[in-house]
Amino acid sequence: MPTVEDLVERLFAGNRRALSRLLTLIENDTPEGRRALKQIYPRSGAAHTVGLTGSAGAGKSTLSGALARELRRRDRTLGIVAIDPTSPFSQGALLGDRIRMQDLTSDPSVFLRSMATRGNLGGLAPSTSGVVTALDAFGMDVVLVETVGAGQDEVEVAAMADTTVVVLTPGAGDDVQAMKAGIMEIADILVVNKSDLPNADLFYRQMSAIYESYSAARNGWQTPILKTSGAEQEGIEALVDALDQHRAHIESTQQREAHRIEQARHQVLALARQRLIDQLVADHTTDGRLDEIVARVARREMDPHSGADELIA
């Protein structure tokens, strides 16, 4: 029976089966998975991590496939993490992103892993960053993370990726949508996908007008707006060029360092928060205090803030 150390060693030797087993251990957040991450983490950090987000049906999977093909044409090795939702009722999930990337399955320089959100909000799965770390340490040049269909507030991916691509489609809301805070603001690159649709040009012009007026360059980077058609494989070369330019930009301006500090802060705090809450719930489920406080709040004998104070006290 191979140990975690064996698996890690085989991962560094380029064994895909070992990589895959480790991804499962990391995804399930087992003690072995945590032990593996401890050994893998120091050897990660070289890959360009790219987040791809946008609403359901915006064409993220098709665009991921198109992007992957162009990256392969440029001889980059590639890890893809594709996230789909877990059912809140059955806890099951149907993960269908491979359908759009069938031709990439047999490419030995591509590794595609599907993940379910398992109850996590924010567009990612709970262990996504660990899975990205492993693909990165495996030696992939690019790790592409495709979020679950995101609405307006699923911005977690930006805290994890070096470059965030937000995918929009014509007809998915007027220009006022684009002026709202949230998902639009996290874009390092904005993509108007399905550019083969009839009203695509009008939508593209509206978006460009908004961006020119309000998004003065952020940290010296002007978010480009690109037209693509994932299905027709159009505009993809320009998108990969923009990815490369963004990476060069964050590296040359030392923003990458600052960004990595933010990423690390986000990860440590997110994990610490989760552990504290798990511990609190475990402790006070055993001694019955949680139920007792909840009952008093439900009876209006205590307000929720006081209930939380009492639980933490």
Partner: peptide, 11 residues
């Protein structure tokens, strides 16, 4: 899926 499993469908 409805039985709580994670199903990868390849097409």
């Amino acid at each position: 899926r409805d039985a709580g499993m994670e199903v990868i469908y390849t097409g």
